[in-house]
Every structure is written in structure tokens, then in C-alpha cells.
Simulated scan of single mutants.
Amino acid sequence: MPKLLVLVSFLLLSACQLLPLGGQARYERQAWEERPAGCRGEACPLVNIDTLHFPDEPALDRLIEQRLLEMTRLHANDPLPASLREYQRSYLSGAEPEQTSYLQAQVREQHDGLIVIELSSYQYTGGAHGLPGRGFINYERRGDRELQLADLLLPGQEAAFWSLAAEAHQRWLVEKGHATDKEFVAFWQFQPTRNIALLSDRVLLKYDVYSIAPYASGHPELSIPKEQLRGILKPQYL
């Protein structure tokens, strides 16, 4: 075989290996709600679980369950149950009236060989309101792995990324009418977040309650358009 033909064949094979997996990943919703056996009425404690099953992505299945279980922790050192079903049984066996636990996983987007999962939780143990939680999984199908921020950024670009996030925070303050409120700006200052989603057109940052705004503000979202991230994100993620 001529050398040029060998080289072209090698380049075509390499390109195919680098292309994202074709099509959308198959998944199904798995949802259920349970109360203690024999309990009736609105005061009954309950567990509501709304999760996902990816038949062709077993590593992602395990990761989703692990992350949802981590969101059940009320204290950092609380042991993790072995499974969502085990969590349900354990919770209901010791829950007080009106206590509730909601856990949810949803597909936020699929694009370019990535699956972006949004995780939500709500734990009510009493008082005026419960504690909601949020999180993301950016799952790269080609490598069967979760992408962390360090995987997305070019070397040495973390400070530049958070500088753009701070600018997005300023836009959020203006949009929500807080920019001229000196007390709000002084108390609810910008900070990084671990909840980062790599969407098709932007990077989305979602904040926990009480992080950069009061509880009534819910989960603030900041967006950085991808065109602003050239030279900061690795080219394959643009």
C-alpha cells in the first residue's frame, strides 16, 4: 500500500476515534414515592425519588445514585446508605411526622458526546422551610468519565474563568435589581461554586441557597457564553 494512502487511512481512523458518540444516549425515568406502612394523612413522612437509568451507561448510573445519596447527608460525616432503596427504608423507619425527602435527577442537555445531568434535593426536617440542594454531572461518554472544571480548562486559566464568572455575577445583580443596593452587595458577595454545567452554548453556574443571595432568591444562575471562553476552555469543549 502506498505510504500516502497509509497516512490518510491513519488520519481518518484517528479522526473517527475523536468524534463524539453518535446520537443521544438512551435513558428511562424511574420514579416512586413511599410513606410508612399504614400511615395516612398529610403529616406522614415521605420519600420521593425521581431518577434515571441509562441502559448503555452503567458508570453514569452508578454516579447518579452516588451523587443523590450524597445529597441526603444532613451532616458531613453521615454514612451513606448502600442504595436509594436502602435510603428510603432507613429514612422512613426513623422519620418524624411531616419530615420529607425529595431526590431528583434530570437530563439537562445532551450534546457533542456529553450528557449533562442536573441533580436536585429537598430535605424538610421541621421549621419554616426545608433545605434544597443542587448539583450537576458533566459526563463524557467517550471516556466514561465525569468532567471536572480542571478537565475543561486550558492550563493556567482557572483565574481567568472565575474572573468571567464574577462579571456574570455583576450582570445578575443588575438583572435582579440588586446592583444599587449597597447592603445587599456588601453582604452577598461573589464566590466560586462547584455546581457547573457545560451546556451547548454556555457554561452555567448554579448556586446553593444562602451562598450569594438570601433563601428567597432560590438558586441563582450565572451564565458565561462560550464565545467569551475562547482561550480559556479547551477547544474540544467549545
Rank of each mutant, 00 (worst) to 15 (best):
D151V: 04
A160R: 12
E109D: 04
G156K: 03
G126H: 01
E98D: 14
T100C: 06
F161E: 00
A76H: 10
I115Q: 09
R73G: 04
T72M: 02
G135C: 01
A128S: 12
A128C: 09
S90D: 13
D151K: 07
N138Q: 03
L154Q: 11
L152E: 01
G113A: 01
V107N: 08
T125M: 13
L152A: 02
Y91I: 07
P132R: 02
A159P: 05
Q148M: 13
F136H: 01
A82I: 11
G127K: 07
S93E: 12
A159W: 09
Y124C: 01
E98Q: 14
S101F: 06
I117N: 09
T72H: 00
R142L: 10
R108G: 12
R134Y: 08
Q104W: 09
Q99D: 09
F161V: 06
Y122Q: 05
Y124P: 00
D112V: 03
L153W: 00
L152T: 00
Y91N: 05
S101Q: 10
G156M: 03
Y122K: 09
Y124H: 07
R141H: 03
S101T: 12
G156I: 03
Y91P: 08
N138Y: 03
A159G: 08
R89S: 11
R89I: 11
A105M: 00
L92G: 03
P81H: 11
Y139D: 04
Y139A: 00
A95D: 01
L131I: 15
T72S: 08
G126R: 04
D151M: 01
E109S: 10
L153G: 06
A95E: 02
T100F: 09
L149Y: 00
G156N: 00
A128Q: 14
Q157H: 12
A82F: 05
Y102G: 13
A82K: 15
E98L: 13
G127F: 05
T125Q: 13
E98G: 13
L92N: 04
L119H: 02
G94I: 15
G127P: 08
L131R: 15
L149N: 00
G133F: 07
G133I: 05
